[in-house]
Each structure stands twice: as structure tokens, then as C-alpha cells.
Amino acid sequence: MYYHKFLIAAVTVILLLLNSCAPSYAPTNWLPNTDQIQKESFGGWLTLSIVDSISNTDFQIEGELISTDSEYVYVLSDSVINVVSKLYVTNSILEIDDKNTDAYAGLAVLGTLSTISNGYYLIFSAPMWIIGGSAAAGGESRRDRYVKEFPSYTYWDEIQNFSRFPQGLPPNLTLDELRPKKLSGND
């Protein structure tokens, strides 16, 4: 009975810890898998929190990172290009690939459940699965993810490399010619 209570508590703790895994904001199947990133030529998925300095309210813009320049960030949401002043961005999250979090999460739960047979000793082995598995899952979810509150010029410069046009907006391109990535297939 004691062991069952412990296991229930352990699995609950795992699920809570895994809840601290960084969420993905990109649409399902939008981000490439890690091994596809070498060929991918779209920008990463950017989620911006912005303060409207007139109404003093916050709102979010998300979409593909097209490019940045000294003053603005260009984000393509569906077929709408958002031109966002860097001055008003309060938080920025850039994701570049689809993480393998589920595999690590499943392993952590299964590993903890396997400690049922340990009896008394699960007090030692279950936490190792909780800590190790959650750390691995949490680590995987946060890997290659660029997050910054009140982003600085250093941050924008860094994520520019993960935009569709790291060289900057093409001078002869009009923004309304841009089209979003089709979800039926990557490039």
C-alpha cells in the first residue's frame, strides 16, 4: 500500500516536472526534425510578446522569422507579414526544430514505474528516474531554443542567423510577395 502511494506520488511528480518542459508554440509539423535542419531553408518559429505603449496592454505575435534589421523584426503569420519594432518587444522565443521530448518523457515515466518491483529500494531508484528522466526531457525541450526577456541587440543579431533571410531582406522584394511554409511537406 505504501509502495503504491509512493509510486503514484512519484509519477505525479514526474508529470509535474515534465510540465516544466518548455512548450512548443509552433503549429504541429511546422518545425523540421533535428536531422532535417541541415536542409531546411525557412526561418525558425518566433513568438513575440509585445507591449502596446498606447493602451499599455500586452499581446502576442507568432510566425516564421523572416528577417530583422536595425529597428524591426519581420514575422510571417499565415500570409500576413508583421513588422514589429524591437523597442516594444518584452519577450521573444525562437524555436528552430521539433524536439524529441516525448521519448524522454515516456522513458522517465516507464523507468519510474519499473521501480515498483524494487520494494523498499524504490525510494532510491525511483527518484533517480524522476531526476534523470525529467532532466533529460527538460533539457531536450530547452535545447536550441532562444529565449530572451527584453531582448538586446546581441539577441537579435544571434537569431538573425535563423531567419529565412539571414543576409537581410532582399532589396527588390516587396513584403506582400512572401508566402508561408506549406505544412504538407518541408523543402
Binding site: 533535428t34 535542419i37 528552430i96 526544430d97 524529441n100 524522454y104 522513458l107 523507468g111 519499473s114 521501480t115 518491483s117 524494487n118 520494494g119 529500494y121 524504490l122 532510491f124 531508484s125 525511483a126 533517480m128 528516474w129 531526476i131 534523470g132 528522466g133 532532466a135 533529460a136 533539457g139 531536450e140 535545447r143 536550441d144 542567423n161 535563423f162 539571414p166
Partner: peptide, 28 residues
């Protein structure tokens, strides 16, 4: 039981060590 204990203690350690998550290094 002893065998299972060893497996359950060692396995997360082994997985954690080998659980090297991939990193993407982009050069531009």
C-alpha cells in the same frame, strides 16, 4: 530483486550520461 535494483539505479545514470541531446551549431 538485487538485480532489478542495480538495473533501476544504473540505467538512469547510463541514460543520463548517454542522453546527450543533440545541439545545432549554425555557422553563417
Amino acid at each position: 530483486k538485487i538485480a532489478i535494483i542495480f538495473i533501476c539505479i544504473l540505467t538512469p545514470a547510463i541514460i543520463l550520461m548517454s542522453c546527450a541531446t543533440a545541439r545545432i551549431t549554425r555557422t553563417v
